[in-house]
Design a protein around this nucleic acid. Structure first.
Length: 928
DNA sequence: TTTCTGGAACCAGTA
DNA sequence: AATACTGGTTCCAGA
């Protein structure tokens, strides 16, 4: 019986998925087989990323408020041309918004597809339907699934984490409350994006939920009948069990179908139905494994950049006021709004709304309460008793809060949000079908700790936590993972869940009495089925191999002047896949990131899953991705330990290179078991230091690079004493004091959290603009670590146009790594995306934040040192793999600031060449 | 019991 | 076309 049902379902599903599938195929063609294995990169440029994954959306969200200023075209263009946007982009905002704005422009086709939502209706019904669905198979077949979007869709309920999400998110309520009002804001300007079809009634547009169709492209008349269509196509009643044929879902399907061991299947169906994740449009093809080629990647990133720029512009024109809006593709808005209903996020009638929502939840979803799993409402109500009153109005509850995919700084003015204790690099996420796998833990065995410095008020704040991506693109909510609230005796920290833009947020009180410090022992990670997410409307990321996440913390501080300062800190990457965690080597730290082209020095790699048979391969790729050079480094087999690997840096092919050469290396445990790419730079034998002109920043740069260099890229956390310049922000933005001087004494920020300051006020943005370049350079070293998956070349990102000194450029490459870090990203979103040089790198892989310091000063470990370090690291109690700080190369590094000794014309020519190439390639990117 | 955890079976897509 | 991998997802069982 199940089988039969399944068949029916699938047929319907195929319809809905059709468009997306096509798009994916297109992209798929572009990728090379080789890269495929390693690039899980998710982005398919052709399809519009509407969900969380689509930064663009978010950007728009914010942007819209400000006004009309940005036209679609700008959005596009920006994506493609960094240069033009550079100024804009350079600003704080550039980085801020990783959007796929361009995507919007592209194939409207997609948009149409999205429009399918009669979301309003769907959502509204969803809750009710859920109940029904759960009750019987029949329902499954006949009912349309409201929320395919699952987690991203507020209406979707996550079985595992909580039914919660769904119920309260229901549209109706959301409309009425919070967001709806925004639409009416005078500031609303029509979103000019071409993507947006003719607006319907303004009201509709403004209402995210209701209007699904209106604002969105779908809204077009043609699409209008969407509700029905949605039901049929977009939201085919899909039994949970009938997971789309995603590659990954094989298991799931089988279960549903009753094949294999899944006993769960039958029940599973009903279960599935309730799951938010159900993919509305399962594609017959299943989810194609799409890897993104460099080219694709580039395109995608550009899109993000564009949107970021747009957002930035809008932001600049706004004063923190957010209008929802018009112009936002319905889907987009819908997504955001959907979640908006989340009580905590609502703005206005705080108290009332809250109450209203609760009521709503209860009324509409009484049954859910009975469900074993906590539902949204339940979760909300179930908040553990804590001194901190959740009901208390939260200053940050404002529509103007930045979207989750906005890149925010970790420090601003006196405030600094720090991750004092980083999470372990591995945490097996649990599926909805599994029980919780517990809270994310710290390396030491405890839990991550986050602290807000510089906040002297007595009013408690709320720390938000969501699961973000860990690839080289701008930080954004992860489509395939959601934070999961952990409760129990062992949990000491109060928390509650709220949905925001299809992403679940965990809100944790930050209390003055606790020094604004929170122990994150209440956050687990839920894995959503790839098939469910991939098939969701607007989702362009793929889940396969997209298993790295970061914990992203945010805090919104309302200042006396009424403005809100939002800070964000992202953790080091966390591998969430059981398999990957067990099999793939992970390089967390490298003792050096550069050496003379002659090689010969020893390098200590610290990480996980190193084997005696592990190989370390150095690779140089051209911009087009093809291999220019590849060689295997000699591994000291005798010293290999699971967490450390000592390799001899191989000589570069051209030992007389006159300019630094950026290459990559990875650790390989077998055919498909490679670590991500790590960056490495070969330096000209006789040009130890590159310094072409006196620059005050130079010192700091060099210093930073050195100091940071030795630190573990990912794990550098509290453990490490902070350098004066520990926080990139501090130095980068020195001129514009985001961070208090005291900052230096604060624990160093992790690369990922490094970012800068973010003040929602326009002023703040402006201030940041000038800094971005500096920041970039400076942050590069800080961010130290850059990982890219093999198969993708990682490249230096082009320097900003205004910084084309050779020095800057060289550093820019290094700093490119910083892109990985959320913080850095905020400043340079542009580089990664638009940089031509980076074209080769597009890895869609999750990369770790940070980039290798390009510092020419980097010193190499001597074998003995390496060994010592390795040993010491092994001896470490908590984490055997953790490299002792003292062993850090940094201590050994010698910072030498010298004038170029032999900077001959040839060298200069090379540098100029690099500059020219970068610039030309940048300009080459078509704006449109 | 319930919640965590670690392992491993299943399976479909890939190589 | 057959076989071995891969990696996602689900189950099982012990702590």
């Amino acid at each position: 019986m199940q089988d039969s049902l399944r068949v029916r379902v699938n047929s319907k599903l195929s319809f809905g998925a059709k468009k997306e599938r096509n798009l994916r195929f297109l992209t798929t063609d572009m990728k090379s087989a080789e890269e495929d294995a390693y690039s899980y990169a998710p982005n398919v440029s052709l399809s519009l990323p509407l969900g969380v994954g689509n930064p663009c959306l978010a950007a728009q969200y914010h942007t819209l408020q400000s006004g009309p200023v940005i036209s679609v075209s700008s959005c596009h263009q920006s994506s493609y041309s960094l240069q033009n946007d550079t100024h804009i982009a350079s600003g704080y905002y550039h980085g801020l918004k990783p959007n796929g704005a361009p995507a919007l422009e592209s194939p409207r086709i997609e948009i149409t597809a999205y429009s399918q939502y009669p979301e309003d209706e769907v959502e509204e019904r969803s809750s009710n339907e859920d109940h029904i669905i759960k009750r019987g198979v029949n329902s499954i077949v006949t009912l349309t699934l409201p929320n395919a979007d699952g987690y991203r869709d507020p209406s979707c309920l996550s079985p595992a984490s909580s039914l919660s999400s769904r119920s309260c998110n229901s549209d109706a309520s959301s409309y009425e409350s919070g967001f709806y009002n925004y639409d009416n804001s005078p500031q609303n300007s029509p979103w000019q994006s071409p993507c947006v079809s003719p607006r319907g009634p303004s009201m509709l547009l403004s209402c995210p939920h209701a209007t699904g169709p209106v604002g969105s492209p779908n809204h077009s008349p043609s699409t209008s009948p969407q509700i029905g269509a949605v039901a049929e196509i977009g939201w085919p009643a899909q039994p949970r069990g009938s997971r789309p044929n995603s590659p990954s879902c094989s298991g799931g399907v089988s279960s549903c179908s009753g094949i294999g061991k899944r006993k769960y299947s039958f029940n599973g169906n009903s279960y599935c139905q309730t799951s938010p994740n159900q993919s509305p449009t399962p594609s017959p093809y299943g989810s194609p494994r799409i890897s993104v080629t460099d080219e694709n990647w580039l395109a995608n990133t550009n899109q993000y950049t564009n949107s970021a720029i747009v957002a930035a512009i809008n932001a600049l024109t706004t004063d923190g006021v957010v209008d929802l809006g018009e112009g936002i593709p319905i889907k987009t808005r819908k997504t955001m709004l959907d979640n908006s209903p989340s009580m905590s996020l609502k703005v206005e009638p705080r108290g009332e709304e809250l109450g209203h929502e609760r009521e709503h939840c209860h009324e509409d979803y009484p049954n859910r309460m009975a469900l074993k799993k906590e539902n949204y409402c339940g979760g909300f109500l179930d908040v553990p008793q804590h001194p901190y009153s959740w009901s208390k109005p939260k200053p940050y509850l404002s529509p103007s809060l930045p979207a989750l995919d906005w890149q925010l700084p970790s420090c601003s003015g006196p405030y600094n949000l720090q991750i004092e204790v980083q999470p372990k690099s591995h945490h097996r996420a649990h599926y909805e079908t599994e029980g919780s796998r517990g809270a994310v833990k710290a390396l030491s065995g405890g839990h991550p700790v986050v602290q807000l410095y510089g906040y002297m008020e007595s009013e408690p704040l709320t720390l938000q936590l969501f699961i973000g991506t860990a690839d080289d693109r701008l930080l954004r909510p992860h489509a395939f993972y959601q934070v999961h609230r952990i409760t129990g005796k062992t949990v000491s920290t109060a928390s509650h869940e709220v949905m925001h833009s299809n992403s679940k947020l965990l809100e944790i009180p930050l209390l003055p009495e606790n020094n604004m410090k929170a122990i994150i022992d209440c956050a687990g990670i839920l894995k959503l089925r790839n098939s469910d997410i991939e098939l969701r409307k607007g989702e362009t990321d793929i889940g396969r191999k997209n298993t790295r996440v970061r914990l992203v913390f945010r805090v919104h501080i309302t200042q006396p002047n009424g403005r809100t300062v939002s800070l964000q800190a992202a953790s080091n990457p966390i591998e969430c896949s059981q398999r990957s965690a067990q099999e793939l080597p992970l390089v967390e730290k490298q003792s050096v990131d550069s050496s003379p082209a002659t090689g010969g020095k020893m390098m200590l790699l610290t990480g996980l899953n190193f084997l005696p048979e592990s190989k370390v391969v150095f690779v140089e790729k051209a911009q087009d991705g093809h291999h220019l050079w590849e060689t295997e480094a000699k591994v000291d087999k005798d010293s290999v330990k699971p967490c450390t690997l000592v390799v001899e840096i191989p000589p570069y092919k051209n030992q007389r290179t006159s300019s630094p050469v950026h290459v990559n290396f990875y650790v390989c445990n077998g055919k498909r078991k490679r670590s991500q790419y790590q960056r490495f730079t070969y330096l000209p034998p006789n040009v130890p230091i590159i310094k072409t002109e006196p620059n005050d920043d130079y010192d700091s740069l060099g210093t930073v690079g050195l100091s940071m260099h030795s630190k573990p890229y990912y794990n550098q956390t509290r453990l490490t004493p902070v350098m004066p310049v520990a926080d990139p922000d501090a130095c980068l933005v020195g001129a514009y004091p985001p961070c208090p001087p005291s900052h230096a004494t604060m624990p160093s920020s992790s690369p990922s959290s490094s970012p800068t300051l973010h003040d929602l006020s326009p002023v703040a943005y402006i201030k940041c603009l000038p800094n971005s370049p500096t920041h970039t350079t400076a942050s590069g070293p800080m961010a130290s670590h850059f990982q890219e998956s093999p198969g993708h070349t990682n490249l230096g990102h082009p320097p900003s146009p205004d910084h084309n000194s050779s020095l800057e450029i060289l550093h820019s490459h290094g700093s490119s790594n910083s892109l990985n870090s959320p913080g850095a990203q905020s400043y340079h979103p542009i580089y990664p995306n638009s940089s031509p040089s980076s074209s080769s790198s597009p890895a869609s892989h999750p990369s770790t934040p940070g980039g290798p310091a390009e510092s020419p000063f980097a010193s190499a470990y001597s074998p003995s040192q390496v060994q010592a370090a390795a040993n010491s690291s092994q001896n470490k109690g908590n984490s055997p793999c953790q490299l002792p700080e003292d062993a850090s190369p940094s201590s050994m590094t010698i910072a030498v600031k010298q004038e170029p000794q032999e900077l001959d014309q040839m060298y200069l020519d090379d540098v100029n060449e690099i500059i020219r190439n970068d610039l030309s390639s940048i300009s080459v990117h078509p704006h449109a």
